[in-house]
C-alpha cells in the first residue's frame, strides 16, 4: 500500500512552555514494496516519524494518505490502520509479557478478533517467518537471548499480517553476527512477501547493504532522501549532523584523492573491492 506524507508537522507538548517541533514539513512518497531506511541520530525525529505512520502519534498539521485515503479523515478506522501497519519498537522487553513465546505472538491476532484456529495458525506462520526454532515456542519469552527476543517481538507484529512493517532499531544491543542475522531475515521477509519495510536506525553502515532507499532525518526535517550511493556522496554534510557514511565511503574517497580512479558510490565491501580492482586494472 502506498504512503504519502503531505507537509506533516508535529509539535511535542504543544501549548506548553516546553514545546518542541519534532517533525517539520515532512513530505514523502513511498510506493508499495520498498525497503526504506530512516536514519538519524537520537532526537532527529526518526522515531516520531515512524510513530506517525501507524497513527500512534497524530500530526499537528498536514496529511497522511494510505492508498489515497486520508488517515485523519472522519470515518477512517485507526484500529484497522494499526493492523495494516505493524510497528516493532526498539526494546522487545517492552512488549513481551505472556507465559510462553507462542501465546505472546497470539496477542496481536487475538486483538483483531479472529477465531482461535486462525490466531494460532498466524502465530505459527509468523514464528516460522522470523526463523525462531520450534523448541523455543513454548519457552518463557524472558528466557530467550537478545536476538531471539527480537525475533519473537517481530513475530508478534507479523502475526497481524501487516502490509507495512516498521522496525525501530531492531539491532540495538546485538552482537555483530546477531545484527547481520536479523537484518538478513528482514531482507528475506521483504523479498518473499513484498511488504513495504521501514528500518529506523542510527547506523548507515548497518542498513546500507539492505535498503533500496535512505531517508536521513535531522532536527525533524528530511535532510536527504535517495538511494544509498547518492546519500553517501554527502558524507561531509552527514558528519555535520552527527552521522557518518559507511567506512567504505571514506576509504574510497581517500583512494580517489590519492589518484586511484575508483567509483566512490560503492556502498558495500563487495562493490568497493570490485571498483578498486577495476581501477588497478586487474
Amino acid at each position: 500500500m502506498s504512503i504519502i506524507l503531505d507537509h506533516v508537522n508535529y509539535i511535542y507538548g504543544q501549548d506548553t512552555p516546553l514545546a518542541v517541533a519534532a517533525l517539520r514539513d515532512v513530505c514523502l512518497q513511498i510506493p508499495d514494496g520498498q525497503f526504506v531506511g530512516i536514519i538519524g541520530h537520537t532526537g532527529s525525529g526518526k522515531s516520531t516519524l515512524a510513530q506517525h505512520l501507524n497513527g500512534l502519534l497524530r500530526a499537528t498539521s498536514g496529511h497522511i494518505y494510505f492508498d489515497g485515503e486520508d488517515i485523519y479523515g472522519k470515518d477512517y478506522d485507526m484500529k484497522k490502520l494499526r493492523s495494516r501497519v505493524g510497528l516493532v519498537f526498539q526494546y522487545p522487553e517492552h512488549q513481551l509479557f505472556e507465559v510462553d513465546v507462542f501465546s505472546d505472538v497470539c496477542f496481536g491476532p487475538k486483538n483483531l478478533g479472529l477465531e482461535r484456529r486462525e490466531v494460532e495458525l498466524r502465530a505459527y506462520e509468523a514464528l516460522r517467518k522470523v526463523g525462531l526454532p520450534d523448541e523455543l515456542f513454548y519457552q518463557s519469552p524472558f528466557d530467550l537471548s537478545g536476538g531471539q527476543k527480537r525475533r519473537a517481538a517481530i513475530a508478534g507484529v507479523l502475526a497481524m499480517k501487516p502490509e507495512v512493517l516498521i522496525l525501530d532499531e531492531p539491532t540495538a544491543g546485538l552482537d555483530p553476527r546477531g545484527r547481520d542475522e536479523i537484518l538478513r531475515q528482514i531482507k528475506k521477509l521483504q523479498t518473499e512477501s513484498g511488504m513495504t519495510i521501514f528500518l529506523v536506525s542510527h547506523s548507515m553502515e548497518d542498513v546500507a547493504e539492505y535498503v533500496d532507499r535512505i531517508i536521513v532525518m535531522n532536527r525533524g526535517s528530511v535532510l536527504f532522501d535517495d538511494v544509498p550511493g547518492e546519500v553517501f556522496r554527502h558524507y561531509k554534510e552527514l558528519e555535520d549532523v552527527g552521522l557518518a557514511a559507511p567506512q567504505v565511503t571514506y576509504i574510497l574517497h581517500l583512494l580517489k584523492e590519492r589518484g586511484l580512479d575508483v567509483d566512490v558510490d560503492a556502498t558495500t565491501i563487495g562493490e568497493a573491492a570490485e571498483t578498486v580492482l577495476h581501477a588497478l586494472g586487474r
Binding site: Q51, N54, L56, K79, R82, S83, G86, L87, V88, F89, Y91, H94, Q95, F107, G108, N111, L112, G156, V157, M160
Partner: peptide, 16 residues
Amino acid sequence: EETDKIMKAQIARGAD
C-alpha cells in the same frame, strides 16, 4: 517514560 513506551508498543499490537 517506560510506561508510555510499553503502552505504545502494545497499542501497536492492537491492545485497547
